[in-house]
Design a protein around this nucleic acid. Structure first.
Lengths: 232, 232
DNA sequence: ACAAAAGTGTTGACGTTACACCCATGG
DNA sequence: CCATGGGTGTAACGTCAACACTTTTGT
């Protein structure tokens, strides 16, 4: 068979080509209690007792990759406004005895408090991960790196923080995701210069220290900042 | 069936899941004659007479995605040092009557003069593309965008240019890929500051204008510049 | 002499980093 | 009065964009 035409299954016996399984696996990062978490469920595979896995499912012939990812998360009402982004396709030789599986990883970052789990799904702190299926660990790592890059080249936080929030809270979100300490003054300057914050002229209440001013996002300006540019 | 465990084909009748085809399609950009090209071959599908397509093949059960991409290009000796990078997985509903196909796009950028085509493969200028299979056009566009971003955050050119080259040639490479005009002085500054060029103290010969100085890349320093950093 | 491309510096705007002190609140 | 975190300004530096004239060669 010609190598270059084999990609067209209508050449030869097409059924010979349709022997793979494709799954989507969702790495849903959640922000809750000032902690970065990820959504997992316990594995039922006997050979991986005690392991957890990413929510996912095999892709059905009549759906697209992204709609399969959506379907996996659909039972969770709070995910209705979810933006899933494809990150990478992982292929492993003979992961399963019956044939080969290709897993396409999607990720998102949501407000965990607004996404109550159902079934056996649970939020797990990224800092205290349980054992994962090995290839799921790789997917999670790759998606986490993607998340970190995402955070660097555009603002995040809308949908994650309460409507009114302090700059401390916002900075802590960034520090947690990037896993670094940031300078408070520079962080403030950066955000004020972005011009996406609205000063509510309100203060925190009942905190055991000087109360912080509260802000909200200016949704319109926030969206503008998420557009990418192709400077040289 | 439980949505979340369906990703494990060992649950239930596993064979039910292995009905997909996965292909890799390679978007190989080539630089030759001061032109950016892409490697294509004519489609043999009757319903797409005259269309060209990307070289690709279905993934076999005993290989990984990247090794499948490698295999597709293996007949081309000059590709032996090739760095293929995965870009995106494309899934389409019922692209073929027999079942669904997921195509994983890989890309690379090579010296087209050192990669002579064989069979029906041909280099096509990006500026004068023939008709492509519709989904291949989408893959090409996505990979081209990836290439442009790649060019922005690290140096390219080693392996693409002759060993000795002028800054005009290098700048033209960048201008072609980014599809913009660049300021000559700023471009020079940028590259000299990167400290990856070695001045050969030689000049062009037999050009109908003032001859340009010739440079080569400092391979070691060049490699250092390709490492990414995660600044905030 | 002319055409064609090579080579060269400065300035201003902007973003990033580093860094130290006083302020407001609750306990 | 103490502990905790809130809030503020400035200087050094690097990067980037904009911009014009002189030099060297071949014809």
């Amino acid at each position: 068979m010609n190598t270059y035409t084999a990609a067209n299954p209508s050449t030869g016996d097409a059924r010979e080509h349709f022997k793979m399984a494709v799954s989507v696996d969702c790495v849903i990062f959640g922000w809750e209690d000032e902690t970065l978490k990820v959504l997992l469920l316990p594995s039922l595979e006997p050979e991986h007792q005690g392991c957890w896995m990413l929510p996912g499912d095999t892709v059905q012939p009549e759906e697209t990759l992204s709609s399969a990812a959506w379907r996996v998360l659909a039972p969770h009402a709070a995910f209705s406004g979810l933006e899933l982004e494809q990150v990478h396709a992982f292929g492993t030789v003979h992961r399963h005895p019956v044939g080969s599986l290709v897993s396409v990883a999607y990720y998102s970052l949501v407000n965990a408090a607004q996404a109550p789990f159902k079934g056996t799904l649970r939020w797990h702190s990224l800092k205290r991960l349980p054992n994962l299926l090995p290839y799921h660990k790789e997917m999670l790592d790759t998606c986490y790196r993607r998340l970190q890059h995402k955070v660097i080249d555009g603002p995040i936080g809308i949908d994650l923080l309460p409507e009114k929030f302090s700059l401390r809270t916002l900075q802590h979100l960034y520090e947690t995701i990037l896993d670094v300490k940031l300078d408070r003054r520079n962080f403030r300057k950066k955000f004020f210069n972005m011009d996406i914050l609205v000063d509510l002229n309100e203060e925190e209440d009942s905190v055991p220290h000087r109360p912080a001013r509260l802000y909200k996002f200016d949704a319109g300006k926030y969206d503008l900042r998420t557009k990418k540019t192709l400077g040289f």
